[in-house]
Nucleic acid binder design. Sequence first.
DNA 1: GTTCAAGAAATTTGATCAAATTATTCGCCT
DNA 2: AGGCGAATAATTTGATCAAATTTCTTGAAC
Lengths: 218, 218
Amino acid sequence: MDSDARKIPSHEVTYARLRDMILFGHLAPGAPVTIQGLIGDLGAGMTPVREAIRRLTAEGALLPQGNRRVAVPELSVDLLEQVAFARLAIEPRLAELAAPKLTGAQIDRLEAIDGAVNRAIEAGKLPDYLAANHAFHFALYEAAEAPVLLDLARSLWLRAGPGLRAVIGRYGREVAPDLHRVALAAMRAGDAKALGSAIERDIQQGVDHIRQALAESH
Amino acid sequence: MDSDARKIPSHEVTYARLRDMILFGHLAPGAPVTIQGLIGDLGAGMTPVREAIRRLTAEGALLPQGNRRVAVPELSVDLLEQVAFARLAIEPRLAELAAPKLTGAQIDRLEAIDGAVNRAIEAGKLPDYLAANHAFHFALYEAAEAPVLLDLARSLWLRAGPGLRAVIGRYGREVAPDLHRVALAAMRAGDAKALGSAIERDIQQGVDHIRQALAESH
DNA sequence: GTTCAAGAAATTTGATCAAATTATTCGCCT
DNA sequence: AGGCGAATAATTTGATCAAATTTCTTGAAC
């Protein structure tokens, strides 16, 4: 029954679960991320939990609290600006690198993911939207075959995670230009520059969204 | 005697030691970074060593090897280009942010560190040079008070670490323009743009150095 | 008879857990 | 309000289990 789960180690599973909780804003900033608590919640042993916390701390998704505890960091305007700057530097480059390597099948897959994004928006399913949007960007970035830049992008999305919580619950007004469609058109045309530009504007749009949500919650 | 060391946890010490070994090229790429080996070499327990390895893996300083081991990654030309691109995007920005916040005392300290850099060069002490150069850059970057960008810079230096090993042992021909001096002049003048530009050229110079060393070792 | 290969045993190493230790925090009492 | 003590949580060690690599042996082919 559970014979299929035997191959992947427990600390990987624990890491992935905790990461997704942060990435999609399921954990409140300042939340008490305690080892003992996660042992109960995730049903894992102590060692796997410790290692998951250490990894996420190293990636900037958790913040050490002076005393020997960690918590989900509050996303201040100052931190958001740093994340925004770095994302705008790294991710358009990833898109440019991916452009010449994309196969037709990969573009089809990206178009399918983008369909899921739009369906989630129309249905008003914010969590689904966040997951699908994440999937779209990283399916594209992975095609760039640039592991260093990809790791940086992952870390930056993780740091922006707590900000998404502020977005959740706001009206799902999705903005005018659908930049994913622009990006897809650039992919089909093989235009790396245009693709990078579309991704850049898409990031700018997303960051603006978080910035507004942050400003309204004081 | 060791009463002062009681406050900082063992896994932090272990992490810092292993990190520095990678950062300054003391570990050969492909080297067998094994838990049991480090327990012996560093005299630490199993859990601290595990956590240090996990943290450094998350930061990209160590690479998982399919089987459940990790090793110091080989620095290919391709990886170096990615690191170079990201460093050129992030670090000049850190310098610009630091410029208006630098106090006279901090600039004096940076000048002192740069003195150590030059002394190490003249004495032909490569390890001392690497340590002092690292200290110079991060003393500057820390003044920017931008933790996100600072973490990214740390991760990038860590990824470039294995490349330094190729540089060690080559003739210590230090290049013409001393860009640290240019940077110090920009700091005293309070010219953020000039400081960013000096750091940018300094990075370019360092990357060129590694690139050449890499090319010569085929 | 020698060599190569396949397979099995043994050793090494990583993963997980449980217990003991140490530090921090919180409530209570003065 | 300040300090003392109990409780809670993190750190660390040691032990046990599972996986992987290496080595040794055995058999067959040349």
